[in-house]
């Protein structure tokens, strides 16, 4: 049994202070996860808190066939989507002003601020689910199978969606950089 599951067992046995361990281990990760979805820091922290309270209250329903982290992120995904649906969160403004390109070709300028802004804008214009999937895959290094459990889809379907979106992003970049200016998606 891994440490997460030991802690869950301890909490269920009445040793509720063990929940501190899970908060310390995952709070920053969950908050960063929500921030990556372009939510303001303040709201992201509120959502993260809500996630942990939900997790605590539903811990007796946790099935240890799942990795604890997968279950936790599933709660986080649902809480984020729910908050957004109820319009309880504010999203960060994406820089609306027209982005004048210094270069339209990434090449060695890949790290420049302009390019990062474009990528940010394009990524955040994607639909919620696929952004969540991509973040889980490449930032948190979940397997396609684990992401499939979260979204109740097959690993193949998740893989297809993620890889297809990567392709779409590269195509959109080329399509939207015209005449040295970044145009709306």
């Amino acid at each position: 049994m891994d440490t997460d599951n030991i802690m869950v067992k301890e909490i269920l046995d009445g040793k509720t202070e063990s929940f501190n361990y899970l908060i310390n281990k995952y709070y920053t990760k969950i908050t960063a996860f929500i921030i990556k979805m372009n939510v303001t820091r303040e709201d992201a922290q509120d959502i993260a808190q809500e996630v942990f309270v939900k997790v605590y209250n539903n811990l007796y329903k946790y099935n240890n066939n799942w990795k604890f982290s997968t279950w936790l992120f599933k709660v986080a995904v649902n809480t984020y989507k729910d908050s957004k649906k109820k319009k309880r969160i504010k999203l960060e403004n994406i820089n609306d002003q027209s982005l004048k390109a210094q270069t339209f070709f990434p090449d060695e300028h890949i790290d420049n601020l302009y390019f990062k802004d474009v990528i940010h804008k394009m990524f955040q214009s994607l639909e919620d689910d696929v952004r969540l999937m991509i973040i889980l895959k490449y930032h948190y290094e979940f397997t396609f199978g684990e992401i499939g459990e979260i979204f109740k889809k097959s690993p193949e379907a998740i893989k297809m969606k993620v890889l297809r979106t990567r392709k779409k992003l590269t195509q959109l970049y080329e399509k939207n950089i015209k005449d040295g200016e970044y145009n709306e998606l």
């Binding site: 921030i35 390019f115 990524f123 991509i134 990567r166 992003l169 590269t170 080329e174």
Partner: peptide, 18 residues
């Protein structure tokens, strides 16, 4: 080369720590 760098840039962006 362009597609490779673009794709890599997207992944780097996602991987970036907040």
């Amino acid at each position: 080369k362009k597609i490779t760098l673009l794709d890599r840039a997207f992944i780097s962006y996602v991987k970036q720590d907040e």
